[in-house]
Structure formats: structure tokens, C-alpha cells
Write a protein that binds this DNA or RNA. Sequence first.
DNA 1: TAGTTTTGTTATGTCATACATAATACATCA
DNA 2: TGATGTATTATGTATGACATAACAAAACTA
Lengths: 240, 240
Amino acid sequence: MVDNIINNFTTVDNSSLVDKVEANLVELLQNRKLKVGDVIPKEIELVETLGVSRTVIREALARLRTMGLIESKKKKGSVITSPDIFGIMSKSMNPHILDQETLKEIFEIRLVLEIGMADFIFQKITKEDINELKEIVKNEPLSSESHLFNIDHEIKFHGKLYEITGNKTMKTFQRMLLPIFDYVHNSGLLQKQLEQKKFVSHKGLVDILENGSPELFRNAMRNHLENHFARLIMSAENVG
Amino acid sequence: MVDNIINNFTTVDNSSLVDKVEANLVELLQNRKLKVGDVIPKEIELVETLGVSRTVIREALARLRTMGLIESKKKKGSVITSPDIFGIMSKSMNPHILDQETLKEIFEIRLVLEIGMADFIFQKITKEDINELKEIVKNEPLSSESHLFNIDHEIKFHGKLYEITGNKTMKTFQRMLLPIFDYVHNSGLLQKQLEQKKFVSHKGLVDILENGSPELFRNAMRNHLENHFARLIMSAENVG
DNA sequence: TAGTTTTGTTATGTCATACATAATACATCA
DNA sequence: TGATGTATTATGTATGACATAACAAAACTA
């Protein structure tokens, strides 16, 4: 009996005014199918239409702005923008704040991406790309002297691979994840380097890109990243 | 002469007060290496320390809040939270707003992920998972009757694969991308279905999961997604 | 008349103050 | 003691004022 009464109260709307206005505005964007560049109503108009103070309107607009949905210009008002989805994310990508489990998962995603990219790389790669890769590899520090491998160089090589896919979003994604990788490498989150047993070197990967197939490349990349995998698995076992 | 003078003025920082305060706060989070749950200074304290109005402080805090970096409670103040990075992103994941190029790129990322996942799936998959997949496949509509293939069913099957990886972040990522896929499928963004030539069916994938290897699975998945690839490539050619 | 400067208008950015509201700690009373 | 009311505190909302940038129209000069 009492439970029923209580349950009737659980639907109390807990959201703040700003939440509602925000939802309202987002809905406006979605339903009206507004295009990039379209302007949305002025603050004052919204104040009158929605019946709340300018403070509330402004905070709601501020949210859309930080989400990259709109951009505000003096005099002109607020216009819809094509959000840089990962740009927003990158601000919250603070390795110090993300918990370790998430960090590890993000690291996994990187590995997944690089193996899965093979098809697109082969589809898009040009002669110039291969030459550029060769150039990068040429300047590669010897594996013997890089016990803790040269992370800058890693980024350069693998970054180029992302570039070749021609997928800007994916490239942005990688750039965003870089601080994470850096952090994960420097932290104790991964097992310390086993031995540096890269069955397939960067040079080997380039060779395959030149003469091989996506299938070969996937397996080679899998091998190349063997260390990372091994370390991830081990630390997972330590945790679990 | 005049040019020099002018040039001296070009370094005027264009950022608003809020921008500066925001940067200040983010830096605070990063440098002080604050942990989740730590409280940050009260609004009033920040007003006094930084010498700006509460309005500015509040908007900066609002930004951190929408980025999921902090959470504000009455009386208690603002505490640092572990941000749900993809949760934030999903709000700006409005297919109507994202431009077509980005949409296509996101779709590509999906394909890349699913091919690259193979290793993790094999590493984590259990007997129960396989049984569950079999169950899903059993209820599969016949491919003959699903000219435009059953998207709900696709999501169910592929979603389960994401789940098996045990990578919650990746799963979240997928969930976030679903509206995009839905939209891309229903839009004219992809070539209309060629013929439904799936060399490898869902059932075939399950068989491989049970008896095959990651390498086999990757190739099978590549094949399975052949339609998507073909359509992406074609529409890319149309554009380019 | 063409081109430049000035002025005015408009919408966002910032400030200040007051009050509302929720959460907590403290005091009060049965 | 333990439930209940009350004070305090920090965020939430409202309002009014002024600052500033962008743009447009008017005014002015060559």
C-alpha cells in the first residue's frame, strides 16, 4: 500500500530548469532538421518563448556550445555548427582522472583499430605514402638501443598509417588518444617491457604494404603489436 | 613602422574570460593530480582568487560539468567525477547535424573495429557466449526474405560481439554509434543494396568462433561485411 | 559619385545583487 | 535516545545594468 504511494512519487521530475531548456533546444535542433549555419532564436526571444530567465537560457546555450553544437557570435546570434565530436572528448581525456580500467580499455581500442584498418589502408595507399613510410623507418633508432622503445617514433609511424586511411575522424580519434597512450606507457599499468620481441618490424610492415595483402598485413600488425597484447593480457590477469 | 606597432597588437588573446577560467580550472585538475571525489574550491572562493565575477566562474564550471569532469551538489560544492566520455559525445552525435563526410567516416570506423576485434573476442569468449550467439542466429530471418536486411537483428548479433570483448568502453562506443548506423542505412548515403551476397553468414561467423582462429575470423568478418565495404567504396568514388 | 569615417543598433559577454532551494549540521524537545 | 525542527551553506535562478564586438546605415570628404 505504502509502497504504491511511494512508487507514485518516483516519477518526480528531478531535472533543473536548465536541463529542460537544454533538452528543448536539442530537440529543436533535431526535429526542425536545421542545417549547419542556420541561426537559432536570440537569447531574448528564447526568454520570452520559454518563460525562463536569461540566466537559464544562457547556461543551456553554454552547454550546447561546449558540446560543439552551436557557436555564438556577437550581434549575429548563435549558429549551428558541425561539432568536432572528438574535440570535445579530448578535454575530458585526462589520464589522471580516468580510472585505470577505462584507460586499459581505451588502449585496447587502439590495438583493435590498427589491426582492423588494413583494408582501408590498402585501398587508399599511394606510392608517396609508401615512400614517406620508408623515410620514417629509415630514421628509426635501432631496436637494440631502444629498450624502452622510442614512443615519439612509434607515434610518427602509426600516425602515418591512420593518415593513409583517409579517415579524418579516425585520425582525430588517434590524436585524442595519444596522451592516454603516453600515460599508459609511462605508468605501471602495463607489465614492464618483456623482451622487445617484435617479430614484425616497422620495416616489415612497410614491405607488406608494398607487396602484400590486407590479410597479410593484419596478421603482421597483430604480430607487431604482440608486446602490447601480451602485456595487456598479463595485467588483466593480475587484476582479475 | 606602423606595421610593427600593429604586429605588437596581434598577440592580444582573443579568448573570453570564461575561456581563461576554464583553462585555469582544467589545469588545476591536471596538475594537482586530483582524484575522483575530491572537491574543488567553492564558487565564491574562485571569485575571490581569480578576480572575476561569479557569472564567469559559473559558466566555466558549467563547461566542466557538461564535459563530465565535475558534478555539482548543493551545499557540498563541486566534486571531480570520472567522466563518461562517450556519454557526452552521444549528445552531439546527431546524424542530422553531422555532415555526410563525417557520417561516412564513423561508419568506416565501425567496420574497422569489428574486424580488429577478433583477437579479443577469441581471448575472452566463453561457452555461454557461443550458445547465446547460436540462439540469436537461430531466430534469424531468412536472408531471402530480408532484402533490406533486418537492422534490429544485425544490431543484436554484432552488439553481442562487442559485449564479448569485455571492453565496456568499446561497447559504449558502439551503442553511441547506433543512431548513426541507423541513419546511414536509411539515408541515401550508401549505395542501395547491391545483391545480398554475404559469403559468410552470421552462422558462419559463429562456427569460426567455435572452431576457428582469430585470423580466420578476421577474414570471415571482412567477407561478411563485404556489402558495406563495397557500398562505401562506391559512394566514395561517386563523391571523389 | 565613390570611398571612407562616424555613429547607431543589436546581440552576446560580463558584473553585481538578491532571493530560492537543497543538503547538511546542529540544536531542540518529547 | 531519537525524531524533528532550524540555521547554515553552497549551488540554482532571477533581474537589471553596462561592456564589447559586429554590422549597418548615415554622414562626411575628396
